[in-house]
Design a protein around this nucleic acid. Structure first.
Ligand code: MN
Ligand code: MN
Ligand code: ZN
Ligand code: ZN
Lengths: 148, 148
DNA sequence: ATTGTTAATGGAAGTCATTTTCAATAAGGA
DNA sequence: TCCTTATTGAAAATGACTTCCATTAACAAT
């Protein structure tokens, strides 16, 4: 209760995980970064404030945080996953702009009408193909301002 | 001109590539399969009718066919690319239903309105984020009839 | 049809992101 | 404090794909 216990600490313990030093350092980095980071990115940043970390632990912790619902994992399509801290437990729906040159990812708010159309399509597929859609993903591949 | 020269033969030669035996066998397999195949899938099928193929050649030929515009390459998000013969040179826009269990991919026709909405979003991003969208991709991850 | 040039082949070895293994360590409940 | 066992980090393994390189085969020019 004395400020140092962030909301996600309770969540992690609640999922049965231990709150270890490497985990806290990784969370610290993730929490104070705003972009979508690769495991390697996280490793490099954590290494600066806690040189003992192993890359293995970074991967494991990242997966653990995804499993706890604290972090989102994004497949950028370039063979390297990206991770990002959620601001809220229930992330609002959004899409991604992915730069084919530098790999940067921009979150874009979901347009209401587009969102509705996707939902309608999803309902249709469950009927037409007996395919249970779980999670629709819309990505716009292209080139960001500095790469185009 | 005697039937045995399929349309894509001219296209391959036209792009400056040689028409070799392994390439023809790979094309034969691709042309007579209807799903979205992984390089490994193609390798196994080709190996049955032409045991001398190397996996390397399968990868190279697949890329060559993509470069020639004869085959489409799809990133299923599971680390294994899928390839599919185009029926027509200009593929009509469509989306994918991807099974998270078995990896199968179902092509779904693009709904006109949804398609238009995506296009509108794309135009907006170029203005708002100075991000030049090249290729929007909509995927519906979930479970197919036999996996759910 | 024969030849010569050079693209294409296939096996082995290399990448690169991620995972597995395993002995040593450290959470945290008792 | 002690004990159990989850967690750690280094090293080795994995899996999809690529690169190397010596050999082979397309095919354009004789
Ligand atoms: Mn996002
Ligand atoms: Mn398709
Ligand atoms: Zn960029
Ligand atoms: Zn399935």
């Amino acid at each position: 209760m004395r400020g140092h216990g962030r909301w996600f600490h309770g969540r992690i313990r609640g999922c049965g995980y231990r709150l270890t030093l490497p985990r806290m350092k990784i969370i610290e980095v993730l929490n104070s970064s705003n972009g979508h980071l690769s495991a390697e990115d996280v490793f490099v940043k954590v290494h600066r404030i806690y040189p003992a970390v192993g890359l293995t632990t970074v991967y494991r912790t990242l997966e653990m945080l995804v499993a706890s619902g604290i972090v989102v994992k994004i497949d950028a399509g370039d063979g390297k996953a990206r991770y990002k801290f959620k601001k809220t437990l229930e992330e609002e729906p959004h899409f991604h702009l992915i730069c084919k040159k530098c790999g940067n990812i921009i979150d874009v708010k979901a347009d209401k009408e587009l969102e509705k159309n996707i939902h309608r399509a999803k309902e249709e597929y469950i009927k037409r193909y007996r395919f249970k859609v779980d999670n629709p993903q819309l990505r716009f591949y292209g080139y960001c301002e500095s790469c185009k």
